[in-house]
């Protein structure tokens, strides 16, 4: 209990130290505010962005597409992972292509998507879906390959159908890996949306970064980055909570 308290206290102390350094150091070292704005500069800019730039709309847009892209991408990745996991043949046939697509830098597709779909929300959604898809797919596929053969045999001996074995043995066995994949994917989703917004479009925090950058408004860029981090962080925390609930049956490593 004391230990837990200590962790929290130290963590908060570090935050305060960083914030103080941020406020004091740039002025002390004579760094101009368009290079590194201080904490109070950034807060003032945040207020201005809220009032004049329609910040709330940008935040909501980015958050919406992060969540939407994450949901669609991980759903597709999981479904594909399970389908390939059920068929050795297709897994072998498709694995080189999957590997190639996984290696290809997904963010580089953004300009293509803009050429194809125009300056709307479609490109950023697609980049996010694409970037989220692979870690989920790979994790699910890996888990499907390593399902305990004896458990499957037991289910077979109990006359379960192929589909029954999937729903009652394979699918639940893969949930820990699926959740790990989702956690990785949640952090990537923010990157996907940001890239989509940076490259094209006129809404979202990614747009504010390129807009602020163009105006040499470093405080705006700082604020947008922090808000993007907060969005990703919240998504991650929600997933962690869900994981705790879903995987309650795993013994805790430390208690």
């Amino acid at each position: 209990m004391i230990r837990k308290h200590g962790i929290k206290l130290t963590s908060v102390a570090i935050l305060i130290a960083v914030l103080v350094a941020w406020e004091v150091l740039p002025t002390a070292l004579d760094v101009p505010r368009f290079i590194i704005p201080t904490l109070s500069d950034s807060l003032a800019e945040l207020q201005r962005m809220w009032a004049n730039e329609g910040l709330l709309g940008h935040i909501l847009s980015t958050a919406l597409y992060t969540v939407l892209g994450f949901l669609i991408g991980s759903l597709l990745g999981a479904v594909m992972g399970y389908l390939l996991g059920m068929s050795k043949f297709w897994e072998k046939v498709l694995s080189p292509y999957i590997l190639a697509l996984q290696i290809a830098p997904k963010v580089a597709f953004a300009p293509l998507f803009i050429m194809w779909f125009g300056y709307n929300s479609m490109p950023k959604l697609l980049v996010t879906v694409l970037i989220v898809f692979f870690p989920v797919l790979v994790n699910v596929l890996q888990a499907m390959r390593t399902v305990d053969r004896d458990l499957v045999n037991l289910a077979r001996a109990y006359n379960l159908t192929r589909l029954g074995i999937f729903w009652k043995v394979e699918m639940p066995s893969t949930v820990p890996n699926l959740m790990a994949g989702l956690r990785i994917a949640s952090t990537l989703a923010v990157i996907g949306v940001t890239v989509g917004e940076l490259v094209g479009g006129n809404t979202g925090l990614g747009y504010l970064i390129s807009y602020g950058g163009g105006q040499a408004n470093a405080a705006m860029v700082f604020n947008a980055i922090i808000l993007l981090t907060v969005i990703g962080f919240l998504l991650y925390v929600v997933l962690e909570r869900i994981e705790e609930r879903v995987l309650h049956y795993l013994p805790k490593a430390h208690q």
Partner: peptide, 25 residues
Amino acid sequence: GFMLQKDLLLPWRNIIANIEFGLEA
């Protein structure tokens, strides 16, 4: 009915649901 060295209980099911497993099909 067979049993191995491993108990092969499904970790996500409670004990009663595990015992029911063989009857479900």
